[in-house]
C-alpha cells in the first residue's frame, strides 16, 4: 500500500508522474519557445527527483548529479536554445504536426507498452523506486516519439535531450545513478552536443533558408 511509505517516498512518485506529464506537454506544444520552456521544467523536475532520491536512499553522490542536471538541463541548455531560437527568428513559427491527438494517444500507448516491458525488471529489484523504472522507460520512448513526429531541427534537438533525460532518470531510479565519471562525461557530451547543434542550425539555415529537416529529403539540383 502506498500509505505505508513515508511522505518523501510518496513525493518521489508524484515527481515521477509529473515528469511523465512534462513529456506529454513536450509532445503537445507546437511553439518552439513553449517547447523549450517545457523542457526546462522537465530539467528542474528531474533535478528535484534526483535530489529527493539522494535524500531518501542516502546516496550523497546523487546530489552532485542533481546540481549538474539543474544547472545544465534546467537552465543552461534551455537558455542557449532560447537564444538560438530568437537569433534564428523562429519564435513565431508554429510547427505543423499532422495529427496531434494521434501523437498523444500513441504516447499513451507507449506508456502502457513500457509498463508491460518493465514489469519483469521491477520484480527483480528491491528498491522503493522500482515502480518508477517504467516511467523512465516511457520517457525515453516519448522522447523518441517527439523526434519522429517533428520536422523542425530545434524540436528534434529537444527530443534528443528528452531521451537523454529519460536515460538519466532510469539510471537514477534503478541503480543509484551511473558512476560519477560516466555521468560527468555524459553531461559534458550533452553540452558539447548543444554547441554543435547551434553551429549546425546556422549551417542548415544558410543552406535551406529554414530549419525544416523534411526539406533535406530533396536534392537541390533536381528541384524545379
Amino acid at each position: 500500500m502506498l500509505s505505508h511509505l513515508s511522505l518523501y517516498e510518496q513525493a518521489i512518485f508524484v515527481l515521477a508522474a509529473l515528469l511523465l506529464y512534462t513529456c506529454f506537454s513536450l509532445l503537445a506544444h507546437t511553439r518552439l519557445l513553449d517547447l523549450i520552456r517545457a523542457f526546462a521544467w522537465q530539467g528542474v523536475l528531474l533535478a528535484a527527483t534526483c535530489a529527493l532520491v539522494a535524500w531518501v536512499l542516502e546516496q550523497p553522490h546523487l546530489y552532485i548529479s542533481a546540481i549538474l542536471t539543474l544547472s545544465l538541463k534546467g537552465f543552461l541548455i534551455p537558455f542557449a536554445l532560447h537564444r538560438l531560437v530568437i537569433k534564428l527568428k523562429l519564435q513565431h513559427t508554429v510547427e505543423k504536426v499532422s495529427s496531434p491527438t494521434t501523437v498523444l494517444l500513441s504516447g499513451v500507448g507507449l506508456v502502457i507498452f513500457s509498463y508491460y516491458v518493465a514489469l519483469p525488471i521491477e520484480q527483480l529489484s528491491t528498491e522503493i523506486t522500482r515502480n518508477v523504472i517504467a516511467i523512465s522507460l516511457a520517457m525515453v520512448l516519448l522522447g523518441m516519439l517527439l523526434l519522429i513526429s517533428r520536422s523542425q531541427a530545434v524540436s528534434q534537438v529537444v527530443g534528443f535531450m528528452a531521451v537523454e533525460n529519460g536515460l538519466f532518470f532510469a539510471a537514477v531510479v534503478s541503480t543509484y545513478g551511473m558512476p560519477m565519471v560516466v555521468e560527468l562525461g555524459v553531461a559534458f557530451d550533452v553540452l558539447v552536443a548543444m554547441v554543435l547543434f547551434g553551429v549546425f542550425f546556422f549551417q542548415i539555415k544558410d543552406n535551406l533558408d529554414s530549419l525544416d529537416v523534411d526539406q533535406m529529403n530533396r536534392l537541390s539540383e533536381v528541384d524545379e
Binding site: 512518485f13 506529454f24 498523444l104 515502480n131
Partner: peptide
C-alpha cells in the same frame, strides 16, 4: 482532449506507480 489525457495519466500512474505495491 487535454482533460482526457490528464485523467488517463491519472489512471496510468495509479496502475504503474501505486497499484501492486
Amino acid at each position: 482532449s487535454f482533460a482526457f489525457l490528464l485523467c488517463l495519466l491519472g489512471a496510468l500512474s495509479h496502475v504503474i506507480l501505486e497499484a501492486g505495491y
